[in-house]
């Protein structure tokens, strides 16, 4: 499958090499009926190696979360065989129910039903902190 062969769909490019599968799971692409391709270790002029995801259908994406995974990720929207949009995801202001707070003194550690919410406190360095206890989010796998 090459980009040219996608009529209506999306190409998620510049995924850091090795994290394509995580993204595949996070976006629940396994459940998709359409053609999906994960290309691992594609060569990249800028980053050496990269992963690429191609989905032969325009799906609703949480672009912001892609920005959290890696700011260099780009999303190309393909319609009628042409790229109609190229999106550079921004870091989301808040991330709800994805990251886990690891602070054993945090209220989230004893209340199982409570959603874990993180807020962006330093855009330049991509720092997120738990809204309850201010603990910094460690880099963690999303799935």
């Amino acid at each position: 499958m090459i980009i040219g062969s996608i009529v209506n769909g999306i190409v998620i490019d510049h995924i850091p090499a090795g994290r394509g599968m995580e993204l595949y799971r996070y976006l629940k692409l396994d459940d998709m009926e359409c053609e999906v391709a994960l290309i691992k270790n594609a060569s990249s002029d800028k980053y050496g190696k990269k992963d690429i995801l191609k989905v032969n259908e325009v799906i609703d994406l949480d672009f912001d979360m892609l920005g959290y995974i890696a700011p260099q990720i780009t999303v190309n929207i393909i319609r009628n065989g042409e790229r109609v949009e190229k999106v550079h995801p921004k870091l989301p202001e808040t991330i709800t129910g994805v990251l886990r707070c690891k602070n054993p003194r945090c209220i989230t550690s004893i209340e199982q039903e409570l959603q874990h919410v993180f807020k962006l406190t330093d855009r330049e360095h991509g720092v997120y902190r738990c809204i309850y206890c201010d603990t910094k989010a460690e880099k963690q796998s999303l799935v």
Binding site: R105, C106, I107, S109, E111, C130, I131, Y132, C133
Partner: peptide, 10 residues
Amino acid sequence: RHPKEGAPMV
């Protein structure tokens, strides 16, 4: 007042 951090925020 609560021993866990963030309880009043909840």
